[in-house]
Design a protein around this nucleic acid. Sequence first.
DNA 1: GTGTAGTGCGTACGCCGTACCAACAACGTT
DNA 2: AACGTTGTTGGTACGGCGTACGCACTACAC
Lengths: 253, 253
Amino acid sequence: MATVDDSALIWTRPEPGTRRPKFTRDQIASTALAIADTEGFAAVSMRRIAGELGAGTMTLYYYVRTKDELVMLMDDAIMSEVLIPADELPAHWYDALTAIAERTWQVLMRHPWALHSLQRAPAGPNAMRHFEQSLAALAGTELDATAKFALLATVDDYVHGNVLRAAEFGAPAEDEARLDAVVQFGQTQLATGEFPHTRALFSGENAQNAFARIVRDASPLDRFRHGLSMLLDGVAHGMNLSFPDRRRGRRAQ
Amino acid sequence: MATVDDSALIWTRPEPGTRRPKFTRDQIASTALAIADTEGFAAVSMRRIAGELGAGTMTLYYYVRTKDELVMLMDDAIMSEVLIPADELPAHWYDALTAIAERTWQVLMRHPWALHSLQRAPAGPNAMRHFEQSLAALAGTELDATAKFALLATVDDYVHGNVLRAAEFGAPAEDEARLDAVVQFGQTQLATGEFPHTRALFSGENAQNAFARIVRDASPLDRFRHGLSMLLDGVAHGMNLSFPDRRRGRRAQ
DNA sequence: GTGTAGTGCGTACGCCGTACCAACAACGTT
DNA sequence: AACGTTGTTGGTACGGCGTACGCACTACAC
């Protein structure tokens, strides 16, 4: 009796502390984060984290009810990185949204595994702050609630989708041999003649060089920016919003 | 000696068959697909698939070298669903891209787990066909190779990102109690006053109703379409492409 | 009928998350 | 200073996972 509500989110349960425990949730989360960043999300196991901390495995369960909760803490830590210091947020909605999106992109690219776990996690405090900040970026516009929501969701969708793809290219370069196998399979397929347009895209040069050219033609960040600006341009037109006036220092709207 | 190259992709290894095996890769993949669709990707285990097929677990390894390869087969099966019959592809790039994106969206929404596994998988034959078809959609434009590639990547990014988010809302309604806990946590946070803009978004009504209103204001598909059209409008302006002329039957460009 | 090699799969190993519960130690009380 | 309470630690064990290894079976060529 008087047990804690089983469905309560971890944010609503205070960290244990009446008798000075050996660890904190933050310590545990950041240990897990370090493992995920250096060895991939798959390397994050309760045994591994505990080992890293010099603790018994089951000790972690005194701070956290399940591994999913621990992942929530990791996600929330990451979301804290995407927050922009209030005084650095540009005044114009277009610039503000761009700044937020770019920062989000950079953070997620540093922790690409977060997208997988973020999916299941309901918004934690820092995710709410991110949303709040995004709304603040739109405060100067005259959009109604539904439009604001739709706009922010669309931008976030693009950011997440881009990271999903970009992260897979920037990955640990794979196996070398594996990569060769992939390229060679691609070439074999192209040779079948079933892919005339794709073949034309790689006109002349061999596929590997062409692929490298396309990849190096623009950095992942540049490609992200380009897509984002197209999206925001479409938004500005479709929602009747102003563009920032870049010719002078003034900020329209 | 004379063993198969370890790094060879599954597509390059022929299915076993000199002596009429009991199963086929297709059978195995579609069994796995059925499990994933009805019970989630986590329920897909080698033991489970084998059980479903009435086979010994290790039998699967005669058809497939690792579970990852099996997942590639699943992904490729899904990618086959997104292909549009050649004669149904609209002539104008804008309509064609919209059709491809919508179909992709619908397929991925039916198999939301695919996004997780798709990330690691190098493009299989059907993924290549999808790319080829996307290029075909742009055949009428005057974009160069780099621009085409960038455009398609951007659209795919948005589609994947949208599914990533939308799928999490349309999920199995969760726990009821769990959902209550999430809503209640949100309200508590709003009450702190740290989130004025978010609070304003839910003006008046209580948060749960407001949330429900925003969700039902537009179906996930409508919201996807809206974002996609904004993106494509931005693309059309930014890349100097024509819009389809909807007033008559003719197709510009 | 017999030999061979393609096919099926049982066993076992080392991972995983975590339920259960005994042991330990920090503190309030006396 | 001694004790009892209870917050904190973590050992053991269970049922899952992917899959390496290698033996058993059997379909077919001869």
